[in-house]
Every structure is written in structure tokens, then in C-alpha cells.
Design a protein around this nucleic acid. Structure first.
Lengths: 333, 333
DNA sequence: TTGTAAGCGTTATCAC
DNA sequence: GTGATAACGCTTACAA
């Protein structure tokens, strides 16, 4: 197979006429090296194309600089945006992202964490799925940081960043009520993850508070296509809803398209729609969707910042607010 | 800071009452270990939560298992899909993806490759930008594999996977001509990357072949928003085009939305539109866009397969065909 | 400030 | 099949 020949510190040292520790120190921020030595080393390194071997460095320093991002369905607009923001943040802190795809089976999140351990990742950030407690315990015991984004389940020692889904759902209801709607529905997928269910429950609870019953439909994956099925179910009811809160934007787009093209309903005059995530498509003029923006950059910044200075254990739950973005899919506004 | 304490092979060896080499062999596929030894080692490893240190292994084997994915604007639908496919493929070959975001400056692709070298990546796959020859040479000299996807520029020793953009553009023209269109335009961004320009040139060339002049407009980034500006420019001309080939789907969506909502034109009766990439949104019923599908899975599979068995040097240019997906944005079909 | 030497956790080589 | 031993390329006391 391929023999890889990278240039090592020893070669640089030889060329510069110094010891290998001088080379090492030159590339260690804050180490004491004379200007002259540094110059000669840098020059030799440049000429030879030397790059510190981070594998070996990680071995010695017990700190690899690697952070694992564990994600499934990463081409989904919201996930992709989060991954982008995270890689950016990590790089700005001179860490590097290892991307692990957990599309396959259910235990693959556990597998992903094993990979993280094998590569001695300094931390893992989980965007999808929920790992077994046994494996997260092993990570934490090994000294690996753990961040769970929108996972909601409790894991002592990990940082959990969640949105206040219930509160957002409540605000969605108020907005629709103020728009004059009187027949409310919640369009959900069958994924039943905690954050998705929190939106449903928050919306229904707000409905009950105001004396309204909320129709709930759930179907399929949290995707565009499910929206059409949910539209079919909701718009063929005897009492057609005039307000629909969709569990996310993707599903909302599918539902709106079906409403318009299959049922000849217009948004917002016949039915008001609110989504969640504020994906790029929500702002496209075909949708012009009122929705909740996830503070993606904020989430990424908090996650990455915490890696370097973990807070006391009881402060490890961050609950962020989603911002309501008013567009044209709700009357008034 | 954090002291990380991972369990080492020595501890496993002690607990299992064998030598450390026995442990190593147990975790090396194809090494000769007796069933009894293997059993005891596996048991001890399980109990202790041992995982082979891939950093150290990489150091010894001179093969890290790491493959760098170098991407900018990775939340763009097409890019996100490619990244997903690549991580999947890599994992199925028991390699792992390191994701490097090159959103920032222009030389950041070079920076990314330096990172790749530092982590002794076995290979780098470049999806965005074009690195300097000096740095790619260093990569190749170091024995690192290099894959360029849709980059088009030549790099001796690297695998280049390109689409046959010109041919696709030619087919787009024929399709529009057969649909009865007589006034052709090409909507491009200002990015001017080789593959984007190849689509433009191919379309114009096909036009000339058939005795038609093609109006070309270029504006901004290759994104949704640019579509509106291009629509503005094209639809306010004295001779309004009745056929527009857009450089990609994102831009096509923006252009179609502007056509419908700002200029009251209907697609395809007033104007036929063809896009490129076949992103998910192209199939959404608001767009129903006829477009060219990039063989994403095929690209990913070829890229990853080549890492293990690089072909002879003169065969390192793979040119793949884009498939025309007929939908409703072109008359007839 | 600089060099020497020990050690990080592996795997590969070699006797046994 | 198994266990010692020598690398791999680096960092970091420690001594000079």
C-alpha cells in the first residue's frame, strides 16, 4: 500500500542545526526559544514542508484537539446550518471537527461515541439521537466533554442546550388567536423526540388555557413529504382548521404546498400557518412563512465555549429562546 | 485543565493476565491469537471500557484512517447532500471524516490542507475552492491522496471527478428548443467557477449551433436571492426570454419565484426554466423544476473507493453524466 | 536558553 | 501462539 513520508521534527532539527526539542518549542505557543533559534527552525521547517504531527502531539499532551459532531440526516436545512456554525466556531478555537454520520441504525450513536473515544476526542457534540447512559458515562469518566443539543434527556455532567419549545408553542398559539383564528391544529411527525413533543404539548396546553381544543395529527418523518399527508388529513375534516402550527418548517412547506395546489386554499386568508426553525426556504417568497428562528450561531458559540471552561454541574442546562419571525403566513402580524 | 484518563492496553493485559501484545493482536484483524486468549482479552477490555487509541495506532501504522472533507458553504442543499453521502461511504470503509470549513478567506483551502497534513490524514477530498499547486504537491509528496470534486483544474496525481457540464447544457438547450422556445437566456452567478462556466459555455455553444443567440446575465453568489435580480434583468428586456437555463436550482427557485410573484409570469406557459443539481426543493410542488441530477452517491462512492486503490495516473479523470429529470417547468417533456 | 532523556500507547519484528 | 523489545514523532521535566 501507500508509504507515507512526512517530514519529522528531527529532520528539521538537523537542517537547522539545533536539537529536536528546539523544534518542538518553536511550535509550542509560550515556550521559551531565542529569536535566532526560532528563525532558523521556522526557515528549515518552511523549506522542508514540516508540519507538527497532531497525532503524536495529542498522544503526549493528552489532548487531541478533535471534537466529534454526531449527526444523522445532516443534509436537512437546519442540521446543515448547525454543523456549519459548529465547524466554524471550533476552527476559530483551533479545534477540529470530526463528523460522524449516524444515519444507519439506532445503536449507531453509541458506535459514534466509541469512535470518539478511539480517536481520543476532547469532546463530542450530539445533534441527533440519544446514546445509552452506559456509554456516555464512559465518555465522561474518560474525561471527555459531552454536549447534547436539543436532546432534552438528562445526562449528569454533560452540557445540555435546549430551546424553550413549550414557550415558543405558547406564543405561536397566541399569535394565531390574535390573527382571528378559531380552529387550531398541530401538524406533527411520528418522530416523537422530546423537543418535537414539547412543541405539541405546549401548543395544546395553550389552547386549553384559552378554551380551545387543538386537533393533533402525526405522520411519518419530520420532512416535506409528510406535510402533504397531514394536509390531506386536516383539510378533509368536517371542521377545517384555520390555524396550523407545524412542528418544523420543512413539514410546513409541504403542508402549504398541498393546501394551495391540492385544496385551493390560500395562506393566510383561508388558513394561517406557523413553522419552526427558520430554514432558508421559509423566507422564499413562495412560502413567506412565519416561524421561530433557532439561535443557531448562539447555540454553536455556547457549545464550543463550554468545552474550554465547563461550568459547575448544576448550571449545565442552557435553555434558549426561539425568536418569532413574522412573515406573511399569518394574518395581521 | 481536564486530565483525561483513558484505559490503556497495558491495563487490559494485566487484568487478562496476558502480555500487551496479545491485547494488540486481539484488536488487529487477521492477527493470530488463540480463542482462549482472545476471549479473556475481550472480556477484560469490555469490563474496563478499553478502546484502541487510534492516535497511537495511526502513529505506528502510518495510516490514521482520517479523511479530510474540505468544504465551504456546507449548508447549501447540494453540498450538504454530498457531505452526507461521503461521510456514509467513508464510515462503511471504516474511515472517518474530518470536516474543514473554508468559509472564511481565500487561502483557507491551503490552511485546510495544512490541517490535513498535521493530522496525517490519509486523504483529502476537496469540494470547494482550489488550493495552490505548492500545497497540493506537498500533500501528494507526503503520500496523501487527493480528490477534487467538480474542481476541473488539473492536478497531476489527484483524482478528479467532474460532471460533463457542457453536455448537460447542450441537452438543456435541445429540451428547451423542442418545447418550442425561441428566445434563450442563461442565468448565472458571478462565481465563475469552471463547472459553472462550462454550463454557460455549453449552453451558448448549443445555441449558436442551432442559430440562436443566448442572452447571458450574471449576478452575485450562486444563491436563491440572485435569482430575483436576474429575473429583474431578464424580464425587463425588450425581448423577454421564453427559456431560461439557470446555473443551479437555488438560483432557479429564486428566479421562478420572482417570475411568478413580481412579474406575473407563469411557468412553463410564459417561460420555461431548467435548473441544475436536483436539490430536494426542485421537487417541491411550488417549483416542480426540470433539472439535472448530480449522481451524488455515485460521486461519493467513486471518491472513497479510489482512496484504497488509486488507479494509474492517466486514468485519474472521471467524467460523470448528469441525468435530466423531467418535471413541469418545461412545456411538453 | 538549550540539549538530553524519558515516556505517551500503539504495532511490528523476532525469538521462543 | 506468545511475549520481549524496538520503533513511531512528539512533549516535557531535568540538568547544563
Amino acid at each position: 500500500m501507500s508509504r507515507k513520508i512526512f517530514v519529522s521534527a528531527k529532520e528539521v532539527a538537523d537542517r537547522a542545526g539545533v536539537s529536536r526539542s528546539a523544534v518542538s518549542r518553536t511550535f509550542t505557543p509560550g515556550a521559551s526559544v531565542s529569536d535566532e533559534t526560532r528563525r532558523r527552525v521556522t526557515e528549515a521547517a518552511e523549506a522542508l514542508g514540516y508540519h507538527v504531527n497532531h497525532l503524536a502531539r495529542g498522544l503526549m499532551r493528552n489532548e487531541s484537539g478533535i471534537v466529534c459532531l454526531i449527526v444523522s440526516e445532516m443534509d436537512t436545512p437546519y442540521r446543515a446550518r448547525l454543523v456549519r456554525a459548529l465547524t466554524r466556531q471550533l476552527q476559530s478555537m483551533s479545534k477540529i471537527a470530526m463528523l460522524i454520520n449516524t444515519d444507519r441504525s439506532d445503536d449507531s450513536v453509541d458506535q459514534a461515541l466509541r469512535q470518539a473515544i478511539s480517536y481520543r476526542a476532547d469532546a463530542s457534540i450530539i445533534l441527533s439521537g440519544m446514546p445509552d447512559k452506559s456509554i456516555t458515562d464512559l465518555c465522561l469518566k474518560s474525561g471527555q466533554r459531552l454536549v447534547l443539543i436539543n436532546r432534552d434527556e438528562d445526562r449528569e455532567g454533560a452540557l445540555m442546550i435546549n430551546l424553550n419549545d413549550r414557550e415558543a408553542a405558547r406564543r405561536a398559539f397566541i399569535a394565531l388567536l390574535r390573527a382571528g383564528c378559531r380552529s387550531f391544529a398541530f401538524a406533527n411527525s411520528e418522530a416523537r423526540t422530546p423537543s418535537l413533543m414539547a412543541r405539541e404539548e405546549g401548543f395544546c396546553a395553550a389552547g386549553r388555557e384559552h378554551g380551545f381544543e387543538v386537533t393533533v395529527e402525526r405522520f411519518g418523518p419530520t420532512a416535506y413529504k409528510s406535510g402533504a399527508v397531514l394536509a390531506q388529513r386536516l383539510f378533509t375534516r368536517e371542521k377545517r382548521p384555520d390555524a396550523i402550527f407545524c412542528v418544523n418548517d420543512l413539514l410546513a412547506c409541504g403542508l402549504m404546498d398541498a393546501a394551495r395546489h391540492q385544496f385551493n386554499l390560500s395562506v393566510p386568508s383561508d388558513v394561517c400557518v406557523i413553522g419552526f426553525d427558520d430554514i432558508e426556504q421559509a423566507s422564499w417568497s413562495s412560502y413567506n412563512l412565519t416561524t421561530f428562528a433557532q439561535p443557531v450561531d448562539h447555540i454553536a458559540a455556547e457549545a464550543v465555549a463550554w468545552l474550554d471552561r465547563p461550568t459547575a454541574e448544576h448550571e449545565n442546562l442552557h435553555r434558549l429562546e426561539a425568536e418569532l419571525i413574522w412573515r406573511g403566513s399569518v394574518r395581521g402580524g
